Amino acid sequence: MKNKINTIYKQAERFAEITNKAIISGNISRAKKLLAVAENLLETGSNETKNVISNVYVYSVSSFMELRHCSISNLFPKALRAEYIKQINATSV
C-alpha cells in the first residue's frame, strides 16, 4: 500500500510538472488539455484520486502560476478553480 501511495503522489507531481512546462513554453492549448484531464480526474476519479488531484496537482500548478503571475481564472476549468478557491480560503482562516 505504501508504494501505491508514493506512486500516485509522484504521478500527480509529475503531471503538475508537465503542465507547468507547457505553461512556461507558451503551449497554452496543451496546458488547457492537461488541466481538462485533471478536471476530469477530479470529477470522476476515486476518492483517493480526487484527494491527490486536489492536494498535489492543484496546489503545485496554482502555486507555480501565482509565482509566474499567470491568471488562474483564465486557465483553470470550473472544478479545479473551485478547488483552488477552497485551498485559498482554508489557508486564510
Results as ranks from 00 to 15, higher is better:
residue 39 E to Y: 04
residue 62 S to A: 12
residue 67 L to S: 10
residue 52 V to N: 04
residue 68 R to S: 08
residue 38 A to K: 01
residue 35 L to N: 00
residue 23 I to V: 13
residue 54 S to G: 07
residue 12 A to P: 03
residue 37 V to M: 14
residue 89 N to T: 05
residue 42 L to P: 02
residue 16 A to L: 00
residue 79 A to K: 15
residue 35 L to E: 01
residue 75 L to V: 05
residue 41 L to Q: 12
residue 90 A to R: 14
residue 83 E to K: 15
residue 22 A to S: 15
residue 90 A to T: 09
residue 45 G to S: 07
residue 88 I to F: 06
residue 12 A to Q: 11
residue 6 N to F: 13
residue 33 K to R: 14
residue 27 N to W: 01
residue 30 R to Q: 13
residue 38 A to C: 05
residue 44 T to R: 11
residue 1 M to R: 07
residue 90 A to C: 03
residue 4 K to C: 06
residue 55 N to V: 00
residue 6 N to Y: 12
residue 34 L to E: 10
residue 52 V to Q: 04
residue 84 Y to A: 01
residue 3 N to Q: 08
residue 65 M to W: 04
residue 13 E to Y: 10
residue 61 V to M: 07
residue 39 E to I: 03
residue 7 T to L: 12
residue 49 T to D: 07
residue 70 C to Q: 10
residue 33 K to F: 10
residue 92 S to V: 10
residue 5 I to H: 08
residue 83 E to C: 12
residue 76 F to D: 02
residue 39 E to M: 05
residue 51 N to P: 00
residue 73 S to D: 14
residue 6 N to I: 11
residue 46 S to Q: 04
residue 3 N to H: 07
residue 49 T to I: 15
residue 75 L to R: 02
residue 37 V to F: 13
residue 45 G to C: 10
residue 81 R to M: 13
residue 31 A to S: 12
residue 8 I to C: 00
residue 93 V to N: 11
residue 53 I to Q: 00
residue 69 H to M: 06
residue 73 S to W: 05
residue 50 K to T: 04
residue 45 G to H: 07
residue 55 N to D: 15
residue 52 V to K: 05
residue 10 K to A: 14
residue 79 A to T: 14
residue 45 G to V: 05
residue 89 N to Y: 09
residue 21 K to R: 09
residue 7 T to Q: 12
residue 88 I to V: 14
residue 81 R to C: 07
residue 19 T to M: 02
residue 66 E to T: 06
residue 13 E to A: 11
residue 7 T to R: 09
residue 38 A to W: 01
residue 62 S to L: 03
residue 82 A to Y: 06
residue 77 P to G: 05
residue 11 Q to D: 13
residue 26 G to S: 04
residue 60 S to C: 08
residue 16 A to E: 00
